[in-house]
Design a binder for these strands. Structure first.
Length: 432
RNA sequence: UCCUGGGUAGCUCAGUGGUAGAGCGAUCGGCUGUUAACCGAUUGGUCGGGGGUUCGAAUCCCUCCCCAGGAGCCA
């Protein structure tokens, strides 16, 4: 009797057994007397081999009419076979089409990205897309596990917010019962009050930026994980970010080997992502850039060229710290040793992937924070609750944010963020 | 928002002033171990939209729309 409910991923454990499975036809090759049917069930792909002489006439007729991406069911014996990429194939005793698909738009040949993006809902079925999204899923679970194992409490920050979190990026505006509301661009400010309740917290959810950025490194909607820790100061923050990144990369290497193989990702550079990461200050970075002939001056922010020039000196992520206060967020703690700079941290991924982590120690002194709010021309009333936190049991604290899509793009070595999220939201593009 | 490149068959593209093309897909036929299978045949067009120049425009000009890549900003 054939066993059903076995996933293709686990067929190796059932060699010699009769199994039944349902899935979708990836590809078919057939001669007059033998048919090869690649079937996907979501967990993997297996080839069913149907011999005209060995299956019922009705089953052979189904083999002849089946088309790419039809829904099928097949029954057969699991056999080891060296010619199969997965090591096993299914020697069929029966085959049936449950839904006949006509003219699936995405063929095994090449397509342009515009066409594929228009068909994102169907492109998801392709092997590279499945691999990248499985890595994303693994990274997401890895993030939750990392913090859960360290006794962090997950705080879900609101998506609808009354005002700019940082007063910098452009926000998506919406209507809220006669008032204006904005889609969140960061959960951090809502995380900080929760510190005094839970000590160690994190949030992980979608964030929205209405900047008219049109590059491979930007999405309008992306997912960000943000830990925030009470009594954590700057050096500890750097250690946390380093431990977080190296553990997450190790987890993907361990659990997504097959996906990285499908993506043809050279895992060598990822295996080097172990601490300690190189740590340089902003001022040292400027000196390095000048030595390379880059004319950047102290006080300028890095652009894409500068990020690439810095990261190419290192074979693992590089931490850059102590940026000029002028171009960083209002809540960053000034460096006690140099008031021109703040205790902010950026981590640049290797291989040209740019900034994946940004964080800082936060100002915990009420009067200093109030002065910064005013300095940045932010509405004090809107930030009253945020200032309140500094009035009732304030403490030093720090946190960072990591963009999930940039992490996944780097780990998978994809050339565009749009392939790291199921339904990317890009400038002027919101279909499907 | 700015700069650059592009829009021709379902898809990927060639065609730069004179009859609209190829490969793939699809359809039909053939083939017992295929891996982007192969072989033969058939099918397939508002040349992005509008206007203009010309005897004649996919091709030259104007305009609009759409797409891709990059910059700034950021994760």
């Amino acid at each position: 009797m054939a066993t059903s409910g076995i996933s293709i991923r686990r067929l190796k454990e059932h060699v010699g057994e009769q199994v039944s499975l349902q899935g979708w036809l990836v590809a078919k090759r057939s001669s007059g007397k033998i048919g090869f049917l690649q079937v996907r069930d979501g967990s993997g792909v297996v080839q069913g081999v149907a011999s005209r002489a060995e299956v019922p006439a009705a089953a052979w007729a189904e083999v002849e009419r089946v088309t790419q991406e039809s829904t099928v069911r097949m029954t057969g014996t699991v056999r080891e076979d060296k010619r199969s990429p997965s090591g096993v194939e299914l020697h069929l005793s029966d085959f049936a089409v449950d839904f006949l698909t006509e003219e699936f738009p995405i063929t095994p040949k090449e397509h342009g990205t515009a066409f594929l993006m228009e068909n994102r809902h169907l492109w998801l079925r392709s092997s590279r897309q499945r691999a990248a999204l499985r890595v994303r899923s693994e990274a997401e679970q890895g993030i939750h596990d990392f913090f859960h194992q360290r006794d962090y409490v997950r705080i879900d920050s609101p998506i609808l917010t009354p005002a700019a979190c940082e007063g910098t990026s452009t926000l998506f505006e919406t209507e809220y019962f006669g008032d204006k509301a904005y889609l969140s661009q960061s959960g951090q400010l809502y995380l900080e009050p929760a510190l005094s309740a839970f000590g160690k917290v994190y949030c992980f959810g979608p964030t929205f930026r209405a900047e008219k950025s049109k590059t491979r490194r930007h999405l309008m909607e992306f997912w960000m994980v943000e830990p925030e820790v009470a009594f954590l100061e700057f050096e500890g923050l750097c250690d946390l970010a380093e431990e977080f990144l190296s553990e997450l990369v190790a987890r993907v290497l361990d659990r997504c080997a097959e996906e990285l193989r499908v993506l043809e990702r050279d895992t060598g550079p990822l295996e080097r992502v172990v601490g300690p990461f190189p740590r340089i200050t902003y001022t040292e970075a400027i000196a390095r850039l000048n030595a390379k002939g880059n004319p950047i001056a102290w006080g300028d922010d890095f652009g894409a060229d500068e990020e690439t020039a810095i990261s190419e000196d290192f074979d693992r992520p590089v931490l850059i710290s102590r940026f000029p206060a002028a171009f960083k967020a209002f809540y960053m703690q000034p460096d006690p040793e140099d008031s021109r700079v703040v205790l902010g941290l950026d981590i640049l991924a290797p291989e040209g992937y740019g900034e994946i982590v940004g964080g800082s120690q936060r100002i915990h002194d009420h009067d200093l924070l109030l002065a910064k709010v005013r300095e940045h021309d932010l509405p004090v009333e809107a930030f009253q609750w945020y200032l309140d936190v500094r009035k009732y049991g304030s403490c030093p604290h720090a946190g960072f944010g990591m963009g999930l899509e940039r992490f996944v793009a780097w780990v998978c070595k994809l050339d565009h963020l749009r392939e790291t999220i199921p339904y990317p939201r890009m400038l002027y593009k919101i279909y499907p």
